[in-house]
Simulated assay, not measured.
Amino acid sequence: MNSALDTVFAALADPTRREILRMLLEDDMAVTDVAYPFAMSLAAISKHLAILAAAGLISQEKRGRVKWCKLEPDALRAASVWMQSFGQFEPVNLDAFEAFLAQELTQTELPEGAP
């Protein structure tokens, strides 16, 4: 389970991916519609979508010539349960959580004996 949870949190660490999830809360979307508001290539958006799909946060389905994306809300259940177990994360501020994780990762990557 830790590996799956790690994958979900890694996917949520990126603001573009969080925005894609927010967009998919409204309805299923074609990949081109997902890409439209972002100032990046379709290939870059496809990479973000692949990460979200690998984490189980979205599913993708081909309908005719168009690839559609659908939010998989149950995928966040384990992450939500994990965060709620701390009791201090009533409304989750994912941006603050991202900053915390970045700081933790920086500290763990320092060479031994570094301040």
Rank of each mutant, 00 (worst) to 15 (best):
residue 60 Q to P: 02
residue 43 A to C: 07
residue 31 V to H: 11
residue 29 M to R: 15
residue 59 S to V: 09
residue 103 Q to H: 07
residue 78 A to I: 11
residue 21 L to R: 02
residue 62 K to V: 10
residue 94 L to C: 02
residue 49 L to W: 03
residue 50 A to K: 13
residue 39 A to L: 10
residue 64 G to W: 00
residue 54 A to K: 13
residue 56 G to Q: 01
residue 1 M to R: 05
residue 93 N to F: 02
residue 85 S to L: 10
residue 92 V to H: 01
residue 22 R to H: 14
residue 79 A to V: 02
residue 111 P to M: 04
residue 38 F to R: 02
residue 40 M to H: 08
residue 46 S to N: 12
residue 7 T to Y: 05
residue 89 F to G: 03
residue 82 W to M: 01
residue 103 Q to V: 02
residue 98 E to K: 02
residue 12 L to K: 00
residue 38 F to N: 02
residue 58 I to C: 07
residue 90 E to R: 05
residue 86 F to W: 07
residue 98 E to F: 04
residue 114 A to P: 05
residue 44 A to P: 08
residue 74 D to T: 06
residue 57 L to M: 05
residue 59 S to I: 07
residue 83 M to Q: 05
residue 47 K to R: 08
residue 60 Q to N: 11
residue 108 T to P: 01
residue 65 R to T: 05
residue 74 D to H: 09
residue 71 L to S: 07
residue 72 E to S: 04
residue 62 K to E: 14
residue 1 M to W: 09
residue 63 R to S: 08
residue 48 H to W: 09
residue 72 E to Y: 01
residue 55 A to N: 00
residue 6 D to S: 11
residue 78 A to R: 03
residue 47 K to A: 11
residue 109 E to I: 03
residue 91 P to Q: 03
residue 74 D to C: 04
residue 32 T to G: 15
residue 75 A to K: 00
residue 78 A to Q: 02
residue 49 L to G: 01
residue 96 A to C: 04
residue 47 K to I: 05
residue 28 D to R: 14
residue 34 V to I: 14
residue 18 R to N: 06
residue 114 A to S: 14
residue 66 V to D: 13
residue 89 F to M: 04
residue 94 L to V: 03
residue 90 E to S: 04
residue 6 D to G: 09
residue 3 S to T: 14
residue 112 E to Q: 08
residue 20 I to M: 14
residue 49 L to P: 00
residue 100 F to S: 02
residue 53 A to G: 10
residue 86 F to H: 08
residue 7 T to F: 11
residue 35 A to Y: 10
residue 51 I to M: 10
residue 104 E to K: 02
residue 54 A to S: 15
residue 46 S to T: 09
residue 66 V to W: 07
residue 40 M to F: 08
residue 6 D to F: 11
residue 28 D to P: 08
residue 102 A to P: 03
residue 103 Q to Y: 08
residue 30 A to D: 15
residue 2 N to R: 14
residue 74 D to R: 05
residue 107 Q to L: 07
residue 46 S to H: 12
residue 14 D to I: 06
residue 36 Y to V: 15
residue 36 Y to G: 15
